[in-house]
Write a protein that binds this DNA or RNA. Structure first.
Lengths: 158, 158
DNA sequence: CTGGAAAGGTTCAAGACGTGAACGATTCAT
DNA sequence: ATGAATCGTTCACGTCTTGAACCTTTCCAG
């Protein structure tokens, strides 16, 4: 026995600390959950964007979530292998690969959104609707203040 | 021009999403700031723990922040190279390497804590003290509900 | 004691990820 | 027509982590 487990966590619990802790936890948990449809967060992100902008080019979508083109290729490859999206030639610009959801992709997205909703509910269990509203507003305040752009979705590793 | 920048971000801004976004931002920002003392978040973490538990073994400290022993070695190596901590033989157990802060380590830690404080203030700029209190309470509620243990400090990559 | 199991620390090889540079194809501007 | 810019892609590289194996030391049962 190495005795007492270190009181080290008498940490002053700052907001910055808590935010990191909770944010990372939320990301991890979501990654676990979304795995149920054989996706990881970045794939789910892309899938959502494709749905929101069908027919757009890879790079247009990549830019929207701030991922480099070289990374985008791999992600689209994965989605295509799973049969969730398709790359179509763009008649107006033959350099472009326009992205579209397949029927399977739509089903998967729908399922993924249900999971996301479930995730949201689990995360905010133990909070009243009023609490949630307040928390949302406070976080939004930080986002505004910090001028946080679009990027940085619930994507993380482990 | 690829025209409109995709409305994709009409995202319903869920709490889970915001928490991830803000949390990851906070982590990144902190990583940038703490670099001013030539540390990265995991090193700062360890430094703090060593200070809170001087003389403890590497693994005792490693366990407290949930990092595997093999990783701990590398971190302590770094801290030792920077002259911030020292490995002392433990007279009671010659397998153990007890960790201690050097004078330089203490100064560095102090400086790091100032940076952390500054980080905290920047992050919560634009919020009233009342806001901060409320946010802290709400986050704490999530932590309690989710039974978030010690681990997962402001450590992230980029 | 004493021999085997267990624990602390370390090393090392391997796997997961992400990124930038470079390239071919195509389009655009002049 | 020609050079610059853009889309998509490949690939090699560096980063970051971890598990397995190893040595040393300690602990415990017999």
């Amino acid at each position: 026995m190495t005795a007492n487990p270190i009181d080290g966590d008498k940490a002053p619990q700052t907001l910055a600390f808590l935010l990191s802790q909770v944010g990372i936890h939320a990301s991890r948990r979501f990654a676990e959950r979304i795995a149920a449809v054989d996706l990881h967060p970045p794939l789910f992100r892309v899938l959502n964007l494709v749905a929101a902008a069908e027919g757009r080019s890879q790079q247009a979508i990549a830019a929207a979530i701030e991922i480099p083109p070289s990374r985008m290729v791999a992600l689209v490859d994965e989605l295509e292998q799973r049969g969730l999206v398709e790359r179509h030639p763009d008649p107006e610009d033959r350099r472009v690969r326009a992205l579209f959801l397949t029927a399977k992709g739509k089903r998967c997205l729908k399922r993924g959104r249900e999971i996301a909703k479930q995730h949201e509910e689990e995360l905010t269990a133990g909070m009243t609707p009023a609490d949630r509203k307040r928390l949302l507003a406070l976080l939004q305040k930080i986002v505004d203040e910090q001028a946080l752009g679009k990027g940085v979705h619930p994507g993380l590793k482990a």
